[in-house]
């Protein structure tokens, strides 16, 4: 049916030898994102925007824009389902500060069933869902960044290197487990 295994040099090769991530060092999102960039092999994460070929500038930090809104009430007016939202606005600049990827918004949300008798457990489940969204967000960001080079080019990417792929780091798992 036309499907083939994703190969080397596919949509995941980042078009930058060095990248800088404009988020605080301790941010869990930054740690996850940097890990995924490094896992691509060809890209080094640097500590300063001046030394980077690609700069990820975060215009709206998702760790600060987490929201929880009511999705469903029961007949007593008690909340039975919330919607957790998590979104980022970022852009990618080159060394000269030229915009390579304009402000890009990626918004994610997950419903969470709720009952006021399960408050403490739900607090932990929320953390789990945010972690899951973070993983999802990083994957979507990676695709957007990887597409910077290929955007506008309709030709398929050059054939993959036939070298036996190193066990690690070669690419990014398509989906990393939530824990």
């Amino acid at each position: 049916c036309g499907f083939h295994l994703r190969g080397d040099g596919g949509h995941y090769t980042l078009p930058f030898p060095t990248m800088y991530v404009g988020l605080p060092e301790s941010s869990p999102l930054a740690i996850d994102l940097k890990r995924n960039i490094r896992a691509n092999g060809g890209t080094t994460v640097v500590g300063s925007a001046r030394d980077a070929d690609g700069v990820i500038e975060v215009l709206s930090n998702p760790e600060k824009t987490k929201t929880k809104t009511i999705l469903a009430l029961d007949n007593n007016g008690r909340v039975r389902q919330y919607l957790l939202s998590y979104s980022i606005v970022f852009r990618v600049l080159d060394k000269q500060g030229k915009e390579l990827l304009g402000p890009t918004n990626i918004a994610l949300s997950r419903p969470i069933d709720f009952s006021d008798s399960q408050l403490l457990a739900k607090e932990q489940e929320e953390a789990l869902l945010y972690k899951d969204m973070q993983t999802d967000l990083v994957q979507q960001m990676m695709r957007r960044i990887a597409a910077i080079k290929t955007a506008g080019v309709s030709l398929p990417p050059p054939p993959a290197d036939k070298q036996p792929s190193a066990q690690k780091p070669a690419s990014v798992p398509p989906a990393v487990p939530a824990q």
Partner: peptide, 19 residues
């Protein structure tokens, strides 16, 4: 602080069915 986790796509990939 423990309860059954709700069943969803992130839960089916976690080891414990409780939170």
């Amino acid at each position: 602080d423990t309860d059954a986790a709700s069943f969803n796509f992130s839960q089916i990939f976690s080891e414990n069915r409780f939170v």
